[in-house]
Protein backbone atom coordinates (compact mmCIF):
# COMPACT_ATOMS: atom_id res chain seq x y z
CA UNK A 1 0.00 0.00 0.00
CA UNK A 2 2.74 2.44 0.94
CA UNK A 3 4.76 1.39 -2.09
CA UNK A 4 1.84 2.17 -4.36
CA UNK A 5 1.31 5.53 -2.69
CA UNK A 6 5.00 6.41 -3.03
CA UNK A 7 5.22 5.56 -6.70
CA UNK A 8 1.86 7.20 -7.19
CA UNK A 9 3.09 10.54 -5.89
CA UNK A 10 6.67 10.34 -7.11
CA UNK A 11 6.03 9.43 -10.75
CA UNK A 12 4.03 12.48 -11.87
CA UNK A 13 6.16 14.80 -9.75
CA UNK A 14 9.39 13.55 -11.36
CA UNK A 15 8.11 14.30 -14.81
CA UNK A 16 7.11 17.91 -14.38
CA UNK A 17 6.54 19.10 -17.95
CA UNK A 18 9.74 20.49 -19.45
CA UNK A 19 7.93 23.22 -21.33
CA UNK A 20 6.27 24.48 -18.16
CA UNK A 21 9.65 24.56 -16.40
CA UNK A 22 11.28 26.45 -19.23
CA UNK A 23 8.33 28.83 -19.43
CA UNK A 24 8.57 29.53 -15.72
CA UNK A 25 12.30 30.23 -15.99
CA UNK A 26 11.72 32.45 -19.01
CA UNK A 27 9.16 34.53 -17.14
CA UNK A 28 11.46 34.67 -14.15
CA UNK A 29 14.37 35.94 -16.28
CA UNK A 30 12.38 38.38 -18.39
CA UNK A 31 10.48 39.88 -15.50
CA UNK A 32 13.64 41.16 -13.88
CA UNK A 33 13.82 44.89 -14.60
CA UNK A 34 17.61 44.67 -14.96
CA UNK A 35 17.27 42.21 -17.85
CA UNK A 36 14.96 44.60 -19.70
CA UNK A 37 17.15 47.63 -19.00
CA UNK A 38 20.14 45.65 -20.23
CA UNK A 39 18.39 44.70 -23.48
CA UNK A 40 17.54 48.37 -23.99
CA UNK A 41 21.19 49.31 -23.52
CA UNK A 42 22.22 46.72 -26.09
CA UNK A 43 19.75 48.16 -28.57
CA UNK A 44 21.34 51.56 -27.95
CA UNK A 45 24.86 50.39 -28.89
CA UNK A 46 24.34 50.28 -32.68
CA UNK A 47 22.20 53.44 -32.55
CA UNK A 48 24.97 55.37 -30.83
CA UNK A 49 27.60 54.03 -33.24
CA UNK A 50 25.43 54.91 -36.25
CA UNK A 51 24.87 58.46 -35.00
CA UNK A 52 28.58 58.83 -34.37
CA UNK A 53 29.45 57.58 -37.84
CA UNK A 54 26.72 59.65 -39.54
CA UNK A 55 27.78 62.89 -37.86
CA UNK A 56 31.44 62.24 -38.63
CA UNK A 57 30.66 62.83 -42.29
CA UNK A 58 31.02 60.94 -45.50
CA UNK A 59 33.92 58.96 -46.75
CA UNK A 60 35.91 56.28 -44.98
CA UNK A 61 36.28 57.40 -41.42
CA UNK A 62 39.09 56.30 -39.24
CA UNK A 63 38.09 54.68 -36.02
CA UNK A 64 39.12 51.73 -33.94
CA UNK A 65 38.47 48.30 -35.35
CA UNK A 66 35.68 47.91 -37.84
CA UNK A 67 34.07 51.24 -36.94
CA UNK A 68 35.99 52.98 -39.71
CA UNK A 69 34.48 50.58 -42.25
CA UNK A 70 30.88 51.53 -41.42
CA UNK A 71 30.71 54.94 -43.10
CA UNK A 72 28.54 54.69 -46.20
CA UNK A 73 28.34 50.94 -45.73
CA UNK A 74 25.58 50.50 -43.15
CA UNK A 75 25.32 46.73 -43.24
CA UNK A 76 28.73 46.53 -41.57
CA UNK A 77 27.17 48.15 -38.50
CA UNK A 78 25.51 45.04 -36.95
CA UNK A 79 28.71 43.02 -37.30
CA UNK A 80 30.87 45.83 -35.97
CA UNK A 81 28.50 46.50 -33.05
CA UNK A 82 28.44 42.81 -32.11
CA UNK A 83 32.24 42.57 -32.35
CA UNK A 84 32.68 45.64 -30.17
CA UNK A 85 30.14 44.42 -27.60
CA UNK A 86 31.57 40.91 -27.49
CA UNK A 87 34.72 42.25 -25.84
CA UNK A 88 33.04 42.97 -22.48
CA UNK A 89 29.42 44.09 -22.72
CA UNK A 90 27.83 40.83 -23.92
CA UNK A 91 29.87 38.63 -21.52
CA UNK A 92 28.79 40.99 -18.73
CA UNK A 93 25.13 40.41 -19.56
CA UNK A 94 25.57 36.65 -19.67
CA UNK A 95 27.59 36.59 -16.46
CA UNK A 96 24.87 38.66 -14.78
CA UNK A 97 22.18 36.20 -15.84
CA UNK A 98 24.27 33.23 -14.69
CA UNK A 99 25.03 34.93 -11.39
CA UNK A 100 21.32 35.46 -10.75
CA UNK A 101 20.49 31.93 -11.84
CA UNK A 102 22.13 29.98 -9.01
CA UNK A 103 24.22 32.21 -6.73
CA UNK A 104 21.52 34.90 -6.71
CA UNK A 105 18.85 32.41 -5.74
CA UNK A 106 21.12 31.07 -3.02
CA UNK A 107 21.65 34.62 -1.71
CA UNK A 108 17.90 35.19 -1.54
CA UNK A 109 17.31 31.82 0.05
CA UNK A 110 15.07 30.73 -2.81
CA UNK A 111 17.50 28.10 -4.07
CA UNK A 112 16.54 25.79 -1.19
CA UNK A 113 12.98 25.75 -2.42
CA UNK A 114 14.11 24.83 -5.91
CA UNK A 115 16.39 22.09 -4.64
CA UNK A 116 13.65 20.38 -2.62
CA UNK A 117 11.08 20.88 -5.38
CA UNK A 118 10.12 17.73 -7.28
CA UNK A 119 12.42 18.58 -10.14
CA UNK A 120 15.50 16.53 -10.97
CA UNK A 121 18.81 18.30 -10.39
CA UNK A 122 19.83 17.72 -13.99
CA UNK A 123 16.63 19.35 -15.15
CA UNK A 124 17.18 22.23 -12.76
CA UNK A 125 20.60 22.90 -14.29
CA UNK A 126 19.12 22.58 -17.78
CA UNK A 127 16.42 25.10 -16.88
CA UNK A 128 18.95 27.58 -15.51
CA UNK A 129 21.22 27.13 -18.53
CA UNK A 130 18.21 27.78 -20.77
CA UNK A 131 17.55 31.05 -18.95
CA UNK A 132 21.16 32.16 -19.48
CA UNK A 133 21.07 31.17 -23.14
CA UNK A 134 17.87 33.14 -23.67
CA UNK A 135 19.55 36.26 -22.33
CA UNK A 136 22.52 35.69 -24.65
CA UNK A 137 20.27 35.22 -27.69
CA UNK A 138 18.07 38.22 -26.89
CA UNK A 139 21.03 40.51 -26.26
CA UNK A 140 22.78 39.51 -29.48
CA UNK A 141 19.56 39.73 -31.49
CA UNK A 142 18.83 43.17 -30.07
CA UNK A 143 22.17 44.43 -31.35
CA UNK A 144 21.79 42.68 -34.70
CA UNK A 145 18.23 43.79 -35.48
CA UNK A 146 18.68 47.37 -34.33
CA UNK A 147 22.06 47.35 -36.07
CA UNK A 148 20.60 46.36 -39.43
CA UNK A 149 17.82 48.96 -39.16
CA UNK A 150 20.10 51.74 -37.94
CA UNK A 151 22.69 50.80 -40.55
CA UNK A 152 20.21 51.06 -43.39
CA UNK A 153 18.31 54.10 -42.09
CA UNK A 154 20.87 56.29 -40.30
CA UNK A 155 24.12 55.36 -42.03
CA UNK A 156 22.67 54.28 -45.34
CA UNK A 157 23.81 51.22 -47.19
CA UNK A 158 25.98 51.16 -50.26
CA UNK A 159 22.98 51.05 -52.63
CA UNK A 160 21.31 48.65 -50.21
CA UNK A 161 24.22 46.27 -50.49
CA UNK A 162 27.19 45.31 -48.40
CA UNK A 163 30.71 46.13 -49.52
CA UNK A 164 32.91 43.43 -48.04
CA UNK A 165 36.36 44.09 -46.66
CA UNK A 166 37.68 42.30 -49.74
CA UNK A 167 36.20 44.95 -51.99
CA UNK A 168 33.38 42.88 -53.45
CA UNK A 169 29.67 43.66 -53.27
CA UNK A 170 27.12 41.36 -51.65
CA UNK A 171 23.34 41.66 -51.99
CA UNK A 172 20.96 42.40 -49.12
CA UNK A 173 19.79 38.81 -48.65
CA UNK A 174 23.30 37.43 -48.56
CA UNK A 175 24.34 40.22 -46.18
CA UNK A 176 21.48 39.40 -43.80
CA UNK A 177 22.54 35.75 -43.95
CA UNK A 178 26.04 36.80 -42.92
CA UNK A 179 24.66 38.84 -40.02
CA UNK A 180 22.63 35.76 -39.01
CA UNK A 181 25.79 33.66 -39.07
CA UNK A 182 27.64 36.12 -36.86
CA UNK A 183 24.68 36.11 -34.43
CA UNK A 184 24.80 32.29 -34.24
CA UNK A 185 28.54 32.34 -33.78
CA UNK A 186 28.29 35.00 -31.06
CA UNK A 187 25.63 33.03 -29.18
CA UNK A 188 28.01 30.05 -29.29
CA UNK A 189 30.82 32.11 -27.75
CA UNK A 190 28.45 33.54 -25.14
CA UNK A 191 27.26 30.02 -24.30
CA UNK A 192 30.87 29.22 -23.41
CA UNK A 193 31.07 32.28 -21.16
CA UNK A 194 27.69 31.40 -19.65
CA UNK A 195 28.67 27.78 -18.94
CA UNK A 196 31.78 28.87 -17.05
CA UNK A 197 29.76 31.55 -15.25
CA UNK A 198 27.15 28.95 -14.21
CA UNK A 199 29.93 26.71 -12.89
CA UNK A 200 31.24 29.57 -10.75
CA UNK A 201 27.68 30.43 -9.79
CA UNK A 202 27.07 26.88 -8.55
CA UNK A 203 30.11 27.12 -6.30
CA UNK A 204 29.21 30.32 -4.47
CA UNK A 205 26.29 32.13 -2.93
CA UNK A 206 27.49 35.61 -3.81
CA UNK A 207 26.44 36.82 -7.28
CA UNK A 208 29.22 39.41 -7.28
CA UNK A 209 31.82 36.64 -7.16
CA UNK A 210 30.47 35.32 -10.46
CA UNK A 211 30.59 38.72 -12.15
CA UNK A 212 34.05 39.46 -10.81
CA UNK A 213 35.51 36.11 -11.80
CA UNK A 214 34.06 36.09 -15.32
CA UNK A 215 35.04 39.67 -16.15
CA UNK A 216 38.36 39.26 -14.34
CA UNK A 217 38.97 36.06 -16.28
CA UNK A 218 38.31 37.81 -19.58
CA UNK A 219 40.73 40.59 -18.68
CA UNK A 220 43.36 38.04 -17.63
CA UNK A 221 42.85 36.25 -20.96
CA UNK A 222 43.43 39.53 -22.74
CA UNK A 223 46.63 40.17 -20.78
CA UNK A 224 47.89 36.61 -21.38
CA UNK A 225 47.34 36.87 -25.12
CA UNK A 226 49.34 40.10 -25.20
CA UNK A 227 52.50 38.49 -23.78
CA UNK A 228 54.63 37.20 -26.66
CA UNK A 229 56.41 34.48 -24.67
CA UNK A 230 53.05 32.95 -23.75
CA UNK A 231 51.84 32.58 -27.31
CA UNK A 232 51.69 28.78 -26.91
CA UNK A 233 48.80 29.48 -24.53
CA UNK A 234 46.72 31.24 -27.15
CA UNK A 235 44.93 28.21 -28.64
CA UNK A 236 43.52 27.48 -25.18
CA UNK A 237 42.08 30.96 -24.61
CA UNK A 238 38.44 31.52 -25.52
CA UNK A 239 39.10 35.14 -26.46
CA UNK A 240 41.71 34.18 -29.09
CA UNK A 241 39.05 33.43 -31.69
CA UNK A 242 36.96 36.50 -31.04
CA UNK A 243 38.33 38.38 -34.03
CA UNK A 244 36.80 35.69 -36.28
CA UNK A 245 33.45 37.55 -36.24
CA UNK A 246 34.87 40.02 -38.76
CA UNK A 247 35.49 37.10 -41.15
CA UNK A 248 31.86 37.26 -42.30
CA UNK A 249 32.75 40.59 -43.90
CA UNK A 250 35.33 38.95 -46.15
CA UNK A 251 34.59 37.42 -49.50
CA UNK A 252 34.89 34.50 -50.15
CA UNK A 253 34.05 33.93 -46.51
CA UNK A 254 36.81 32.03 -44.68
CA UNK A 255 35.05 29.59 -42.38
CA UNK A 256 38.07 28.08 -40.65
CA UNK A 257 38.36 30.77 -37.97
CA UNK A 258 34.64 30.64 -37.21
CA UNK A 259 34.63 26.84 -37.06
CA UNK A 260 37.69 26.66 -34.86
CA UNK A 261 36.44 29.23 -32.36
CA UNK A 262 33.05 27.53 -32.24
CA UNK A 263 34.69 24.17 -31.45
CA UNK A 264 36.74 25.88 -28.73
CA UNK A 265 33.54 27.40 -27.32
CA UNK A 266 31.90 23.95 -27.28
CA UNK A 267 34.84 22.63 -25.25
CA UNK A 268 34.33 25.45 -22.75
CA UNK A 269 30.61 24.62 -22.65
CA UNK A 270 31.47 20.99 -21.84
CA UNK A 271 33.86 22.02 -19.07
CA UNK A 272 31.48 24.57 -17.56
CA UNK A 273 28.40 22.40 -17.94
CA UNK A 274 30.11 19.33 -16.52
CA UNK A 275 31.37 21.25 -13.49
CA UNK A 276 27.97 22.84 -12.90
CA UNK A 277 26.17 19.48 -12.95
CA UNK A 278 28.90 17.87 -10.85
CA UNK A 279 28.41 20.53 -8.18
CA UNK A 280 24.61 20.86 -8.37
CA UNK A 281 23.97 17.11 -7.99
CA UNK A 282 25.26 17.40 -4.44
CA UNK A 283 24.50 21.00 -3.55
CA UNK A 284 22.42 21.43 -0.40
CA UNK A 285 21.36 25.05 -0.40
Amino acid sequence: MTAVALTGTAAPARSAPVLRLLGAELRWVLRRPRTLVMLGVFALVPVLISIGVATAGDGPGDGPGLIGAIAGNGLVLPVAAITVSLALLLPLAVAMAAADAIAGEAAHGTLRGLLIAPVGRLRLVGMKAFGVLVVAVLATLAIAVVGVVAGLVVVGGAEGQLVTLSGTVVGLGDALGRVGLVVLWTVGQLAAVGAIALAVSSLTEHPLVVLASVLGGLIVFGVLSAIPTLDWLQPYLLTTGWTAGADVLRDPMPLSGIAESTLRALCYVAVGGGLTIFRMLRRDA
Partner: peptide, 24 residues
Protein backbone atom coordinates in the same frame (compact mmCIF):
# COMPACT_ATOMS: atom_id res chain seq x y z
CA UNK B 1 22.39 7.57 -9.47
CA UNK B 2 23.83 10.69 -7.89
CA UNK B 3 27.27 9.15 -7.88
CA UNK B 4 27.11 7.94 -11.49
CA UNK B 5 25.69 11.32 -12.47
CA UNK B 6 28.59 13.08 -10.83
CA UNK B 7 31.06 10.75 -12.52
CA UNK B 8 29.39 11.39 -15.87
CA UNK B 9 29.43 15.15 -15.26
CA UNK B 10 33.10 15.07 -14.34
CA UNK B 11 33.71 13.00 -17.46
CA UNK B 12 32.05 15.66 -19.61
CA UNK B 13 34.20 18.36 -18.05
CA UNK B 14 37.37 16.33 -18.63
CA UNK B 15 36.29 15.62 -22.21
CA UNK B 16 35.99 19.38 -22.72
CA UNK B 17 39.53 19.90 -21.43
CA UNK B 18 40.84 17.11 -23.68
CA UNK B 19 39.04 18.70 -26.62
CA UNK B 20 40.74 22.01 -25.90
CA UNK B 21 44.08 20.23 -25.88
CA UNK B 22 43.31 18.54 -29.21
CA UNK B 23 42.32 21.88 -30.74
CA UNK B 24 45.58 23.41 -29.55
Amino acid sequence: TGRTGRIAAAGVAVAGLVGLGLLA
